[in-house]
Amino acid sequence: MTTVIEKNQKNGRLEVGTPLLEVKDLHVEFHTRDGVAKAVNGVNYSVAAGETLAVLGESGSGKSVTAQTIMGILDMPPGKISQGQILFRGQDMLAMSEEDRRQIRGQKIAMIFQDALSSLNPVMTVGAQLGEMFRVHRGSSKKEAREKAIELMERVRIPAARQRVGDYPHQFSGGMRQRIMIAMALSMEPDLIIADEPTTALDVTVQAQVMDLLAELQAEYNMGLILITHDLGVVADVADKIAVMYAGRIVETAPVHELYANPAHPYTKGLLRSIPRLDQKGQELYAIKGLPPNLLKVPAGCAFNPRCDVATDLCRTEIPKLHQVSDKDGKELTGRRSACHLWKETLHG
């Protein structure tokens, strides 16, 4: 946590601890032919300036849907926000006019998508796509926009930016394309960046480069960052805190290193055990049994109970609340919560 405070003090854009973005009790449903899929069920999280929140979860856990809802790019219908607030600098974005939200999108909150090849327009040059931000939001001339685009490309360390500004997305490598996505997100110097699995489509070596670049730029601009991922390895180095999602709910939140050292939810525990480790070479890799639930038929009680090794009868009937977690002496651990009836046993046992 100290790193966050340091970052904030250094830049002094927002008071320490003032959340930039707060998601409050967000519920999102999808109305399909087979019924209502509850993709997000009462999610709460917040991000401060300069802070990195990692949202971890499998496909279908609701992590991307939450991000799309924040961004205002959720397909509605079939999606429907049934409840909740999303406060950006204290203002509820869900209550704003579409025009006000558009002014925030791209300029105040920007998003980086997973697959840069399909997320960049194949028939426009990267220069035009980067420059478009300045043309539209800053009223720049064509020439200015082009210069700005080159500047941005240099900023994200694309070699020979001036020669490549007229190239099309397919002419770049995967890592370079993701850098262009990052440059586009950075163009308006937003307060918050949402990165939806930014490195999933990349080679491992390139992943690290892109992640480092993102973390470096975030620190430089003192931006809030929401990093959505299913990759525990990506999270460890860059995140300040983690929210683990399962079946549309947050099941555990914790400062990043505490979560790795000592998880307070059996699902998190299972995730950590299923990371391949060099010192356990030759042993069978642990896997959480079963599959994530179908969102149309979420199990009663704790959604994780059919896959959980320690589930009791209580777990099969009652949905656990997000409990404040405390250490053995009963002292509350700041920022640590777990949605498990057996969090004590999991954490201390």
Binding site: M71, I73, R102, Q103, I104, R105, G106, Q107, A110, M111, F113, D115, S118, S119, L120, N121, P122, E132, M133, V136, H137, M184
Partner: peptide, 17 residues
């Protein structure tokens, strides 16, 4: 429904554009 159209929306562009 393409990803790059979603990107264009996320850039804060007007619907027309």
């Amino acid at each position: 429904r393409a990803d790059y159209v979603r990107t264009a929306v996320a850039k804060g562009l007007k619907k027309r554009r």
